[in-house]
């Protein structure tokens, strides 16, 4: 994959995550899934999973080790 394309994907992923973090559009309800997982925490954990995938991608495609 060309570096420019990888950079574009990384920027798109980052912008998407930011938009999903600033989530004023999401209705705030008191829902506890299975009695144990508040919706708010579940949403944030999913977001963090997405962030982790983005980081793995960035580390693999955009950072070359120059330390030798």
């Amino acid at each position: 994959m060309q570096r420019r394309i990888a950079l574009g994907i990384a920027w798109f992923g980052f912008a998407t995550l930011l938009a999903l973090h600033i989530d004023y559009w999401r209705p705030q309800r008191v829902i506890v899934y299975g009695g144990v997982l508040p919706e708010e925490i579940g949403y944030r954990m999913l977001w963090m999973a997405g962030a982790w995938i983005l980081l793995l991608f960035v580390c693999a495609r955009l950072f070359e080790d120059r330390s030798g």
């Binding site: 973090h21 977001w47 963090m48 962030a51 983005l54």
Partner: peptide, 10 residues
């Protein structure tokens, strides 16, 4: 949690 952890993690 949402205010701090996700954005710090990224």
């Amino acid at each position: 949690f949402g205010l701090n952890a996700p954005i710090v993690a990224l």
